[in-house]
Design a protein around this nucleic acid. Structure first.
Lengths: 328, 328
DNA sequence: TTTAGTATTGAAATCGATTTCATAATGTTA
DNA sequence: TAACATTATGAAATCGATTTCAATACTAAA
């Protein structure tokens, strides 16, 4: 394991000169520069990044907090971020919070201890007041999720609109009994519910709490929900599921029980994942252009890190689009 | 941003004593220990990890190299690894190589510059001789992929067996014309092909290169392959796809063209992802217990890092299982 | 009451880089 | 040619922690 000292010795120059070559400083003569490069080459020298960071060099790393990578929405989001980051010579550190607020908060030590230049919050179990103190250690922005009190940039979608257009679509198809699923009480869910409620109250319908489900995430959860509504006396004829996984599970289970989608039950997913076109019927869903969100968020993050943009309370909203298929 | 000096000053003690408290060294009196802890608490002090690393403290980070996170196999693998790592206080750094050998090699700087304690190679575009020099900077193991020359631990599946049982199953169903798909020429693919060829030659069948496809990864690729075989004069009646995505695309496209699966075309996937039970027909595939592989690989990695296990040329093989459903 | 051993603490060296400051060599302008 | 600016280089300070070493206080055995 060679150090800058070894290189300096080998090249017959000082550490300072070697450092200048490494960092492309001016005022190094061409011949010495080459001598240093040759010495580095021969020793296979790589600068120790911890030592460099101690002198406040950028880490060229950004952490992304997500709930779980197995959720295809997050895989796609992270993939887009990574691609953008790599293009600018940055690396991505993936942090699964598993919807655990303490675990989420622990990751901020990465910032405090200068292991990353910034953190993108694509999961947000903590209130902004818990996050705020960390902002002095590096850049923090939100992506998809957000806290309305946050004083930093938020790259996200208009989820109120998302909930609204999904529900409105079912209303337009003539449904009056519309069920609703959501995950945990995140900003995304809260807003979508607002949109859902807005649409049905606008149509003069009283929301039925029996038909509204929380903490529904997976294919299996979708299957369970179907069984629960099938057992009801008075049951919904349509469902806004808030997730393609849930929609997929619900549709599959309905079919296994001899129901016909959309005639017996209409279902709207969310996200337009590959599964939406693979099942039979292909299902109606809402495309949220996941890659675009990830790419934009990383773009904003890098601009802030490199001082080309200010990190102030600002919402960058990306579009949503209803994709009508055969499940409604 | 407070340093150990600030804490020492506030506690009226020396940096050395503060450091001893941080690292739980013996020979610190109870009252001073508490004084230090109080001072740290009040300042909200967090040790600078770069400074610590400079003194050769473990980073408690492991990097995983994969080709692309959007592949559900890798999401699941990484998820299992992360879960295991977190349980031991380690963090995971995700590195997408996008099947680019240079990019793959670049990530090894993480080891050289002491940013991670080890690297798990779940993608392997480079030969072992290119990787070997880096092993002196930290722990390197293979997971799923591997190079036969490697002198380190390899947690993986018997892919020859995988190719064999998938193909054998189709032969048992009476098929004699069996197509084959694979991704790039990785160790996994090479071995699966061996298994495929072994099965059909055992059955006295001459392999037909027209029916063997390379660089097939996605749902879309599966759709394309269907169109290509549909256009053939003499075409296969069954397919070993090596991937649930490819199987899904192929089945869907076949159905859209009025073919019946499995009567007109039998299809075997690989991986037993959720999609395999969601489509109609649910399809036959090979379960490779992805989470178990990820978990085992991380377990081995941590044992090696912590000196409880030797990192020698050793294959840790996990089981594969054919799951028969309705597509064959 | 010595003496040896153990517990407690801090000053200073150290890890491997970057950066400041001083100095020397060279070039440019009046 | 004198005065000044620019280029080139290295010694030493620095970043924020850990660790060595020496000094001191306390305890137990002789």
């Amino acid at each position: 394991m060679y150090t800058i000292k070894d290189v300096a010795l080998k090249a017959g120059l000082s550490q300072a000169t070697v450092s200048r070559v490494i960092n492309n400083h001016p005022y190094v003569s061409e011949d010495k520069k080459q001598a240093v490069q040759r010495a580095m080459e021969e020793l296979g020298y790589v600068p120790n990044s911890s030592a460099r960071r101690l002198r406040n060099i950028k880490t060229k790393k950004v952490a992304v907090l997500i709930s779980r990578i197995v959720n295809p929405f997050f895989s796609q989001l992270v993939d887009a971020m990574e691609q953008k980051a790599a293009k600018h010579g940055y690396q991505l550190i993936l942090c699964n919070t598993r919807i655990n607020p303490e675990k989420e908060l622990e990751y901020f030590e990465l910032l405090q201890s200068k292991q990353v230049d910034g953190i993108i919050l694509a999961a947000a179990e903590n209130k902004w007041e818990a996050i705020a103190p960390f902002t002095r250690y590096g850049t923090v922005i939100y992506c998809n999720e957000y806290d309305p009190d946050a004083t930093v940039t938020r790259v996200r979608l208009d989820q109120v609109e998302g909930g609204y257009i999904g529900t409105k679509h079912l209303l337009d198809k003539g449904h009056r009994k519309i069920g609703y699923c959501q995950g945990n009480d995140s900003s995304v869910s809260v807003n979508r519910r607002k949109g859902y409620l807005k649409a049905i109250t606008e149509a003069g319908i009283e929301p039925n709490p029996e038909w509204m489900f929380k903490d529904i995430f997976t294919i299996k959860d979708g299957r369970d929900i179907f069984r629960r509504i099938a057992a009801m006396e008075d049951r919904p004829t349509a469902f806004f599921t808030g997730s393609d996984e849930v929609a997929a599970g619900m549709i599959k289970e309905a079919q296994l029980n001899g129901w016909c989608v959309p005639d017996d039950l209409a279902v709207v997913g969310f996200d337009d994942q590959p599964i939406a076109t693979l099942m039979d019927p292909q299902f109606t869903t809402i495309n949220q252009f996941t890659s675009d969100i990830g790419e934009k968020a990383m773009e904003v993050m890098l601009e802030i890190i490199e001082g080309k943009r200010e990190n102030r309370a600002e919402d960058i909203l990306l579009p949503l689009k209803l994709i009508e298929r055969q499940s409604t």
